[in-house]
């Protein structure tokens, strides 16, 4: 799957480099959701995350001639995204309080036919992203790269600039922390539901 995806990416990149700018659209469509997810979860501000995600794609476009095929295009792109967020966070210097619209913004623009299923999903969505945003920045990125993109540890190391062993350690701790939080929250929700049913 990854190889097929990468070979398609390489074809589009070749087309862009030969002057077919429109071929870049395919790459944007393919990766926009994850890049946006990453920027939203790292920056925690909707407007800034959107701006950052756009900058990531523009930087990737400009830098395409410099893209060497020693990494997959997606990994290279995520590295740009990660660095963009880190730079923006450094510019802020102090950590911002959680944006008030952070939870509400997830709920906008979703269309799902089954109402009950959607409610469950919505709840899960909120819980998960609440739990993710409580993790430190690097851990947040690692967890997302691991679970959403199924990236191997070596590629996560390339994206974040951490050593492979450091990635492994951080990832394990982050997963453990996230799991504890999720299970704890889940249990709370179940017990609350049980009480209300009584």
């Amino acid at each position: 799957m990854g190889k097929v995806r990468n070979s398609e990416d390489l074809q589009w990149i070749k087309a862009v480099l030969q002057g077919d700018t429109e071929a870049f659209r395919h790459l944007v469509v393919r990766y926009k959701d994850f890049v946006y997810s990453l920027t939203v979860n790292l920056l925690k501000q909707k407007e800034e995350a959107e701006e950052a995600a756009q900058d990531v794609f523009l930087k990737a476009f400009r830098g395409l001639p410099r893209f060497r095929h020693d990494a997959m295009f997606s990994t290279w792109l995520y590295r740009i995204a990660y660095n963009e967020c880190v730079t923006r966070l450094r510019k802020r210097k102090t950590k911002l309080p959680l944006a008030a619209d952070f939870n509400e913004m997830h709920l906008a623009g979703k269309t799902e036919p089954e109402e009950i299923h959607w409610q469950q999903r919505e709840e899960q969505y909120k819980l998960l992203h609440d739990a993710i945003r409580e993790l430190p920045e690097t851990d947040r990125a690692l967890v997302m790269l691991f679970y959403f993109e199924k990236l191997p540890v070596e590629e996560m190391s390339f994206v974040t600039g951490l050593s492979v062993s450091n990635v492994k350690t951080k990832l394990f701790r982050a997963r453990k922390k996230l799991y504890d939080k999720m299970v704890h929250i889940d249990e709370e929700v179940v017990s609350r539901k049980g009480e209300s049913e009584k």
């Binding site: 926009k32 939203v40 969505y125 819980l127």
Partner: peptide, 9 residues
């Protein structure tokens, strides 16, 4: 279950 964020329209 949760899924990724969706980039804005």
């Amino acid at each position: 279950m949760a899924g990724k964020e969706h980039a804005p329209a």
